[in-house]
Design a protein around this nucleic acid. Sequence first.
DNA 1: TAAAATGTTGGGTA
DNA 2: ATACCCAACATTTT
Length: 279
Amino acid sequence: MPELPEVETIARKLREGCGADPSILRREILSVEIRHPKPVAFPAVEVARERMRSLVFEEISRRGKFLVCRLSHGYLLIHLRMSGDLQVLPAGQPPRKHDHVIWHLSGDADLRFHDPRRFGRIWLVESPQDVLGPLGPEPLGPDFTEARLGEMLRARKRLIKPLLLDQTFLAGLGNIYTDEALHRARLHPLRRSDTLHKDEVARLWHGIRTALRVGIAQDGASIDWVYRGGNFQNHFRVYGREGERCKKCGAKIRRIIVGQRSTYFCPRCQRAGRKSKGK
DNA sequence: TAAAATGTTGGGTA
DNA sequence: ATACCCAACATTTT
């Protein structure tokens, strides 16, 4: 479920703790309980379990939609995909349905990977680049400039929405924040990437960064059956609002399918350019 | 009931 | 090589 702001929020909570939930930093992994092998992408399940034992969580960060845990040796990388979640619970609580991996930590705390759809994956690697290498730039990073975005867009001939969802193009946007960013930029989701003018590139750059920043400020979104405290769902301008009024112009929000994904936009604010579909 | 859900990947086509 | 389409993964919810 999570996109960049949700993963950022989870990383911060694991790092700093959250209310009664303690930080997992400096805690030692006493043992790892793998109740379902599916999420363990690398190395083999038993090897991963053995290697994690006695390691310590030294640093928690994020790259795109990946949670990056630097351990006292190597890195634990976690991708939550559609329905994954990470929670810290007091030791000794019985596992719940869909708790697939449980790290038993020093100080009587457990870290749990909970994932009903089981699309999520974890990796234990020496170098994070092995997994994170193909990712595009960080949209909130210092090297992602307006000029860089313009060059990136011009180098491709793709529809803008599927391109923004491509993690090798830009790391961290998902279906929600892409639609929100395009609305902020007043760009139609079917615009072709190499047709954007300079001011449109600037609007897109600001739209992407503002949507993500607001999402992070709201602790991410909590929708469907996963509630983890975020509030961004109450700030959606277009996502999930088919038939409702655009908060900017009052037109009815439309829903179309682009690249097999629901796509919400305002037909008045985000007018399609004449040559937007190419051909 | 059928459809849809914050994601990615692999296979096929042009 | 690039771009695009579809199916698949697995479960829950509306």
